[in-house]
Design a protein around this nucleic acid. Structure first.
Lengths: 194, 194, 194, 194
DNA sequence: CATGAATGAGGATTCATTCAT
DNA sequence: GATGAATGAATCCTCATTCAT
């Protein structure tokens, strides 16, 4: 059986999300995660190479299912503009539904060292690929302009979504994030121009 | 004479930028900064309360002059759309001109703890205020649409600029960042729509 | 099992006594104590909250057994005057038998900060209570004079014993401390006698 | 002119007493003493070899005038028993009159290192000599018993006086110390009396 | 004489990781 | 597989002292 399918593997990752969200990245000691997961400190190392591996795995697992869910949702949609809307809405929905995960991805995991963030970026690329594909399809289908710089447009889309979620988390998730999907989508597709 | 006008104050901040950029946030020991600045370890503490104070001061000094320069540039411009362009271009120019500072602001300083990031955010607000003012003026002058959500638009603008710079830094500053000012400005003002 | 009954707990305390006696309070680094105890530096912190906690525990353990031994000795004696003699003799015997402990209690521990000394005083109070009890019993039994000020008499007894031991330690324990029990007792009881 | 007769010499010593009494031995930095004395840090070193020298000088100056005053008082008295009374009363009076000095000599200076305390003891010996002389005279004049062990009696006298003052200081000088001179004298002379 | 900016040595503590049981 | 006691490397800051002015 694959390591990542064993119950304790998932148990430890869920514990890590909770511990990091509640204590902050720098106060999330391995012993705290072990305690939260209900296992001994040493047991962690039967499932993860080291502490960094927990965090990378956490991001891979969570981001993986994140991307899968979004791909499934936009799979049946033909309009790229519409696909972009669903991507934004789903992105907001998934993070709004998991307060802990939102804190971890938007605030805490960014405190990790450069090394870890490079690994995280590799995972992110799969997400950015989804955005790229929508953009390319949109250009081909004539919904987006021909001379659109896909890389820049993707940076705008991701940058805007990310900044919107981060601001929401830093405001202690006080307002309805999902409700912003529509105006954000409008901004991104139509722009500020009069 | 104010502490922050003394030569060693600036000397230490410049040293901190270099050391953090070259060694990373977590490998930027006080002794390394002192050595780079050409002063004794203890001298650091004649000018800064503690290590965190160096980082906060660094950000305040750099971001402060950053904002001042941008404000000066857009001061003489009447069109908000044009102002936004100059803001983007200047933002890119200033960071492209200081490789070390770009690494520090886009990557290293984000690893700081929540406390420090809150302090950094206070400084950032002044920048976001500049963006907001441009947007409000744009709406009033009829260059931007009446129903524009200023907060969301600001999050798009800052998120896009930030993501663009970060991607550039993570790609080792291999391409011309300033050249992106025009298409980014176009994207932000006109959007992706055909 | 209680932390204080584990072998390493006692091992570390014994090491602390030796290191402090041989190097002095301010030269008794945690790493030195760990080395003397044959454990890693970090192990100290599995048994003690911090360095101060080692010193407080040391005093509590040693003074605790000190008081117990004295109480056991005087338990079977009926005459308060005789009790006082045994207390003095036992006090001298116990410190004369442990050169290191004598140095630590008479010289080194007094260099501790006010906070620590307040904690030490709490332990000392138990000792002073034993003296008080002897004095009160002596007054009741008519061996000591009715108008004896118990507090002052206790200060005389403790002050004299303490000064005698300190002088002996400062003279490098060159003469026989225990032999002084009899003349000291004589001096002290004349002051108290009815 | 002798260094110790210059105004700044005395100024610094008075400052040291105040700073140590108010901040504690370990919080009495040279810079604090300099500030309190109204001189620059460096000036301290024109009058004292090092920090330890300040403390030794402080004790020498204060203890010196302490002993002189006591010697002057007992000079005109013929009875050794009476002399002892005046010594105790004067000892209590002088410390009761200078709260700061009492704190410094009874609590703070004892936190100094072994080296410093050895130096302090040399000064103390002059005081103990005064006691010894009274005792010897008392034996010769038949007021104290012939077989009195002078060294032990001196340790009792000094130990008792010292313990009494220390207890009074630790009780925040709440009660009348001088009033204790009489009962303390009574306790001590009974032990010595012929 | 006086200044005060600059110096730099020194140590308690944390926590990821190991390994004997 | 699971445990958790033990390890030990690594760093910020203080403050007595100096010396150029």
């Amino acid at each position: 059986m694959l390591k990542r399918n064993k119950p304790k593997y998932k148990q430890i990752i869920e514990a890590a999300v909770i511990v990091i969200a509640e204590n902050g990245y720098h106060q999330a000691q391995v012993s705290k995660i072990a305690k939260q997961a209900g296992v001994a400190d040493g047991t962690i190392y039967l499932y993860f190479k080291n502490k960094e591996d927990i965090l990378i795995s956490l991001f891979q697992e969570k981001m993986g299912s994140f991307i899968e869910k979004i791909q499934k949702e936009i799979g049946g949609i033909s309009s790229p503009t519409e696909k972009l809307y669903v991507l934004i809405e789903k992105h907001f929905q998934l993070l709004a539904a998991d307060r802990h995960l939102a804190i971890v991805t938007q605030l805490e995991l960014r405190q990790s060292n450069k090394e870890l963030r490079l690994r995280i970026n590799e995972v992110l690329k799969r997400y950015l690929k989804v955005v790229d594909d929508i953009l390319i399809e949109g250009i081909e289908k004539g919904e987006f302009r021909k001379d659109l710089d896909v890389r820049l447009a993707r940076q705008m889309i991701f940058g805007t979504i990310d900044e919107t979620v981060t601001t929401w988390v830093m405001n202690e998730q006080k307002y309805d994030l999902v409700a912003l999907a529509k105006p954000v989508h409008q901004l991104l597709t139509k722009g500020c121009a009069a």
